[in-house]
């Protein structure tokens, strides 16, 4: 049997020999995977927001101030008669103000409000979220103006689309950055392995001469590459753990503020983060194995 001690000592002396190259390779893997991890978590978050908006698809129909109760009742009856509608809830001006006060408790905004600027509204949920456009259109006349009594119609679609397009742009940019960094990481690990192969070329020659198997010759190099990639992965996890949480909280805040989304819509990445961590470590190891595999193919002939 081959003693594992052999492989360990070979690998570590090699890592020591190429200290700076090794550091460069590990840091590049770490940064690459950190970005991959961050992006994954952000996408997951945004998807969460999108899904929760979709599932609650609520149509808010704001009414003109001073609408007659007859017209209000007429509109409500109309809405209830549509088959796509699941429920309709009337929110009066007073209820709206009450709700606003609750949501902004302790805020300076409250001091600035005089009277009640908030409109009354109908909040409509649908049986089938896909029909939301069709329902929304019924509040417009054929000239594109709101029908009598209606001041504004707001529904989640705008947020969803905005969110989608922002995510898509971030996604494309991130993927380009990741691709470039990934390539750099592979090249750097490849290079450290190339150097170790070069440093041990005499040993490799003797090994082949006396009949060491190809795997026996390769394993220390594969292990070295794996270790570099894996260490990079672990560092990326640590980075993500500390800065990632911090950044994500900011990002979520930003989404909440700019999109005017209810805070509860943010799902948070708590549950999946552990899988992201595992994924990063595995990915790091694979990048290392791949890079040293390429170097071995190129420099160690059978």
């Amino acid at each position: 049997m081959v003693r594992p001690g052999y492989f360990f000592s070979e690998t570590f002396s090699s890592l020591r020999r190429n200290f700076f190259m090794t550091c460069a390779a590990i840091s590049t893997v770490a940064i690459t995977l950190f970005i991959v991890g961050l992006f994954t978590v952000i996408v997951y978050d945004v998807m969460g927001v999108v899904n929760s908006i979709k599932s609650q698809v609520e149509l808010a129909v704001y009414l003109e101030d001073g609408i007659s109760s007859g017209l209000k009742d007429y509109i409500e009856q109309e809405i209830k008669s549509w088959e796509e509608v699941d429920s309709v809830k009337y929110v009066s001006k007073d209820q709206a103000l009450e709700r606003f006060k609750e949501q902004n408790e302790g805020s300076d905004i409250l001091k600035e409000i005089e009277g009640n600027p908030l409109p009354a509204s109908f909040e409509i949920t649908l049986k089938d979220p896909e029909k939301i456009d069709r329902v929304a259109l019924r509040f417009y006349d054929k000239d594109g103006n709101y029908i009598e009594g209606v001041n504004d119609v707001i529904y989640g679609k705008n947020y969803v689309n905005k969110l989608f397009s922002i995510t898509a742009i971030i996604g494309v940019i991130t993927i380009i950055i990741i691709a470039v960094l990934l390539l750099a990481a592979i090249v750097l690990i490849f290079n450290t392995i190339r150097l170790s192969i070069y440093a041990r070329r005499k040993e490799i020659e003797v090994m082949k001469l006396v009949g060491a198997t190809n795997w026996f010759v390769r394993i220390p190099f594969l292990f070295e590459g794996f270790l570099e990639g894996f260490t990079g992965g672990i560092i990326s996890i640590i980075l993500l753990y500390f800065t990632g949480n911090f950044l994500l909280i900011r990002a979520e805040r930003l989404i909440v503020d700019t999109m005017r989304i209810k805070e509860m819509a943010i799902v948070g990445s708590g549950g999946v983060i552990i899988y992201v961590y595992i994924g990063l470590a595995v990915l790091g190891g694979l990048i290392g194995l791949l890079s040293s595999g390429i170097a071995l193919r190129k420099y160690v002939k059978v």
Binding site: M1, V2, K202, E203, V206, V210
Partner: peptide, 24 residues
């Protein structure tokens, strides 16, 4: 010769057996 300079005589010869997995 193709000897490994950083290994002793014993280690050089033993190397041929180590890398084919012979027990110590």
């Amino acid at each position: 010769f193709k000897l490994l300079p950083n290994k002793t005589i014993f280690e050089n010869v033993a190397f041929a057996l180590e890398v084919i997995g012979k027990p110590v």
